[in-house]
Every structure is written in C-alpha cells, then in structure tokens.
C-alpha cells in the first residue's frame, strides 16, 4: 500500500527534469506567441534556419563558445594536473590547500570587475584571449582541488617504484602517472569545459559585449524580448553538454567526494 506512490512520484520527477528541455525546444520553434493565446501563430523551423544565415550571429557565437571552452578546459586540466602535484606533495600542503579554496569566496563576476583594471593594462579587455585567461583563472582552483585526491601516498609509491625500475621523469609521467589518471583527466576536462561553457558574469565584464559567447547571446535576446531566439540559443547551450553527459556520466562524479 505504502509503496504505490513511488512510481508515480518518480515519473513526475522524470517529467520535471525533461520539462525545461522540451519547453526550450518548443519555444525555439515558435514565433508570434501573443498572450493570452495558448498556441503560437507560427510553429516550425524558421528560427533554426537562421542559425545558418548570419542573422543573429548564432553560429558565430557557437563557434566562439566552443573555441573558448575547449581552450579553457585543455589549459586548465593540464596545468591543474601538474601544479596540483607540487601543491599536494608539498610539506605545507594543508596551508596551500586552504589558499586554493580562497578564490571560491569571490563571485566570478565581482572578481572580474575588480580585475578589469589589470586586464585593460594587459590588453586583454574585450577580446577572446582575455576571456579565456579570465575563465582559466576561475576554473584553475577547481582543477587544482579536483586532482588533490590523486596525489596520495600510493601514487608517490608508484612513481618511486618506476624510478627504481629505471624510469626517467618523463617516462614516469607518460607510462605511469598519466595513464593512471586518465579517467580523472577526462572528468576534469569535462567539468572545466562546463564551467567555461556556462559562464556569464565574468565573460560579460571582461568581454564587454564584444566577445559574444552563447550565454551572452541568451541575455541579449532576453533584453530584446526576443524569447524565441533566446530559447534557440538556450538549446545550443544545453544540448552539447547533454551529449557529453551521455558519454561521460559515469566519470563525472568519480573521486569527487
């Protein structure tokens, strides 16, 4: 008796999760949806067709977003992996660990506002490089802390063993440490990709509207009250991660707790 509600509730949860995806797709197919009509005046692929034309610049934004997020994810994962080794094998690793958490305290957008002076001085304001650098700065602490669990005593033993078996420093990395860290590297890449892919506040400040990633586009369309294009950019924003999640989900949480 008591158990009967469970399947219903679960189905409800599933619908709840699928709802935003469906809604965004449907909204992106509409136009001329006046209140209080229940159905729009147009329903079809008109909006989607504009991705291919230059109107709205969505394709461009998509490409820029991919380039930025890939760059951030690659640089962050690699640097995070190597630098976390130094940090977590350091005699004072506890102190360094606390320091590594500090960047989390400042909201990225406030951080960007406080840093913009330096970005202007360095010529990193309003261009793609600047956005990549800024996003790298907020994704880096994540990667650093993410790899902390990898550099344990056992991994040190593996590295030492490899050395006594005659392995050089390079061989220790290529033959032992990197292969053993493979799944963690993948997860870190994926997560830092998402951090960058989803980032809005910091990008809007460092990019000052000149670097139009997809999140920036969504906001622009919302401001213009062009909700159909807004939904269309939302679709472009959420479906690539869905695909990645499908292939990657078993890795996502590994070693996070």
């Amino acid at each position: 008796m008591k158990r009967y509600w469970k399947p219903f509730f679960l189905s409800f949860l599933v619908l709840l999760v699928l709802f935003p995806f469906t809604y965004m797709v449907l909204l992106s197919l509409m136009s001329g949806w006046q209140f209080p009509d229940f159905l729009p005046s147009y329903f079809g692929f008109k909006n989607w067709a504009t991705i291919m034309t230059s109107e709205g610049g969505l394709l461009q934004s998509f490409v820029i977003s991919v380039i930025i997020s890939l760059s951030v994810a690659i640089v962050t994962t690699i640097s995070g992996f190597f630098i976390s080794r130094v940090v977590y094998y350091h005699p004072k690793s506890k102190v360094l660990n606390v320091l590594a958490y500090f960047p989390y305290i400042l909201a990225p957008v406030v951080f960007a506002a406080c840093l913009s002076f330096f970005f202007i001085k360095l010529g990193l304001f309003g261009n793609v490089t600047g956005v990549v650098v800024a996003q790298f700065l907020i994704a880096f602490p994540y990667a650093l802390i993410f790899f902390s669990s990898f550099w344990n005593q056992k991994m040190k033993s593996y590295a030492d063993l490899t050395a006594t078996l005659g392995g050089s420093r390079l061989q220790t990395y290529t033959k032992v440490l990197l292969p053993m860290a493979k799944s963690m590297l993948l997860v870190c890449f994926f997560q830092t990709f998402l951090i960058s892919w989803f980032e809005y506040g910091l990008t809007s400040i460092i990019g000052i509207g000149k670097v139009q990633t997809l999140t920036i586009k969504v906001f622009l369309f919302i401001k213009e009250a062009n909700y159909y294009y807004g939904a269309l950019s939302c679709c472009l924003l959420i479906f690539p991660p869905v695909v990645l999640l499908y292939f990657n989900k078993r890795y996502v949480f590994k070693k996070m707790v």
Partner: peptide
Amino acid sequence: KPSERNIVYLYQEDLLFPH
C-alpha cells in the same frame, strides 16, 4: 638518481600497474 642506480625497491603493497 634512483633511476640510474639499478637498485629496485619493493614495497609491501604489490603496486601492480592497474592499467
């Protein structure tokens, strides 16, 4: 360096490479 000594140190754990 350890890698040039031709001395192998074995731990109590077997430390086989899982990959």
